[in-house]
C-alpha cells in the first residue's frame, strides 16, 4: 500500500553514466559512473527538504530525474503519482524548477514578457495569474525590474525573477538547485523569507540542493545527505546540531611573526609566518575575538572562513546512527 500523502517517492533509483575519457591520441577508455546508486526516500506534501552533499555526489542528477530531464537507469520514481521520465510534459504543469546557475527565463526578453509567455505556456487563467504575479512581485520586490531584459539583471535580481516564474502556475512541488549561490546577503535573506512564505501559505513542497548551511538552518526541517550517489543521512534538523559543533576559522595576518596566540574559547590551528588560523565555535560571534586580538597585537588583515559543507557532512556521519559505517 503506497503512502497516499507522499508527493515524491523514490525506490532504489539509480543513474549510471557511461564516461568516455581520452587516454591517448586515439585511445579511449570507457567506464561506468554510478552517479546515483540506489536511493530511496519519500517526501510528504508540504515538507521543505534540504538535499545536500559534496560536489559530484549526485544531487543534480537526482533533481534532473525528479523533473524528468534524465531517465533513471533503474528503480522506481514517482512525483505526484506521475513517472517523470515517461510523462515529462504532464508533470511539468505540476512542478516548478529553479536552476541556480541557469535561468529558465528568456535571456533577451523583459521579465514581464517572460512571465506572459509562462502564463500562456502553462495556460494559467487570468485571475490566478494576476494574483500569483502580484504576490511574487510584492514579496520579491520585482516591480522595478519588470521591464528590464533578463540579461541586464544582476544575479540576485535574476534569481528572484526565476523563482517567481517557477511559481506562477501554482506548482505542488518546487525544486531549487542552489537557489542562493552567488547571491549577496540581502538577496539571500529575501529569497529565504519568500520560500518560507510560499511553503506556509500555499503548502508548496520544496526540495532544495544547496552548499549554504544557512539555507538549511532557516528553511528545512528535514535534511538528506547524499555522498557518492548514496543517501548517507535522512533525518530531522537536530542531526544538523552536529553543525553547531563545527568551527569557523578566523584567518589573521599580524604585523609580525608571533607565537600561536591563546584566546579563551578559541584555539590556534596553524601558524605560517605572520598568518595564523584560529578556530572558534561556529555559533559564537567573531567580534569579541577580533577586538581582543586587535587590542593585543597589530593586525594587518583578517577574514572569517565558514565551515565547509564537507566537514559538516563528515561530522554528521559520526553523529548519526543511521549512517552506514
Amino acid at each position: 500500500m503506497p503512502d497516499m500523502t507522499a508527493l515524491i517517492e523514490l525506490d532504489r533509483v539509480e543513474k549510471v553514466f557511461d564516461v568516455r575519457r581520452r587516454t591517448g591520441p586515439l585511445r579511449r577508455e570507457r567506464r561506468q559512473v554510478r552517479a546515483v546508486d540506489g536511493i530511496s526516500f519519500t517526501v510528504p506534501a508540504g515538507q521543505v527538504v534540504g538535499y545536500i552533499g559534496p560536489n559530484g555526489a549526485g544531487k543534480s542528477t537526482t533533481v534532473k530525474m525528479l523533473t524528468g530531464i534524465l531517465t533513471p537507469s533503474g528503480g522506481r520514481l514517482r512525483v505526484a503519482g506521475i513517472d517523470p521520465s515517461r510523462e515529462r510534459t504532464r508533470l511539468a504543469r505540476r512542478i516548478g524548477v529553479v536552476f541556480g546557475q541557469r535561468t529558465t527565463l528568456w535571456w533577451d526578453l523583459p521579465l514581464r514578457d517572460s512571465y506572459e509567455l509562462v502564463r500562456r505556456m502553462y495556460r494559467i487563467d487570468a485571475a490566478r495569474y494576476r494574483r500569483n504575479l502580484d504576490r511574487c512581485v510584492g514579496l520579491l520586490d520585482l516591480a522595478p525590474l519588470l521591464d528590464v531584459p533578463v540579461r541586464q539583471l544582476s544575479l540576485g535580481q535574476r534569481m528572484r525573477g526565476d523563482i517567481a516564474a517557477a511559481l506562477l502556475h501554482d506548482p505542488e512541488v518546487l525544486y531549487l538547485d542552489e537557489p542562493t549561490i552567488g547571491l549577496d546577503v540581502v538577496s539571500k535573506a529575501k529569497v529565504r523569507a519568500f520560500l518560507r512564505t510560499v511553503n506556509t501559505e500555499q503548502g508548496t513542497t520544496v526540495l532544495l540542493t544547496t552548499h549554504d548551511l544557512t539555507d538549511i538552518e532557516q528553511l528545512c526541517r528535514r535534511v538528506m545527505v547524499i555522498d557518492h550517489g548514496r543517501l548517507v543521512y535522512d533525518g530531522g534538523l537536530d542531526g544538523l546540531h552536529a553543525a553547531g559543533d563545527s568551527e569557523r576559522t578566523l584567518v589573521v595576518d599580524f604585523e609580525r611573526e608571533l607565537p600561536p596566540v591563546e584566546l579563551p574559547g578559541a584555539r590556534c590551528e596553524r601558524v605560517e609566518g605572520p598568518r595564523q588560523w584560529i578556530a572558534f565555535p561556529a555559533a559564537a560571534s567573531a567580534a569579541p575575538l577580533v577586538a581582543e586580538l586587535a587590542a593585543r597585537h597589530g593586525v594587518v588583515d583578517l577574514s572569517v572562513r565558514e565551515p565547509a559543507i564537507e566537514d559538516v557532512i563528515a561530522r554528521m556521519y559520526a553523529a548519526s546512527s543511521t549512517a552506514p559505517a
Binding site: 534532473k64 530531464i69 510534459t89 511539468a92 512542478i95 536552476f99 541557469r102 529558465t104 505556456m121
Partner: peptide, 14 residues
C-alpha cells in the same frame, strides 16, 4: 554544451 537545454525540458511543451 552550456546546459540551458535542461531549462526547456521542464516546461510543459515539446
Amino acid at each position: 554544451r552550456d546546459g540551458t537545454l535542461d531549462t526547456l525540458l521542464v516546461r510543459p511543451v515539446p
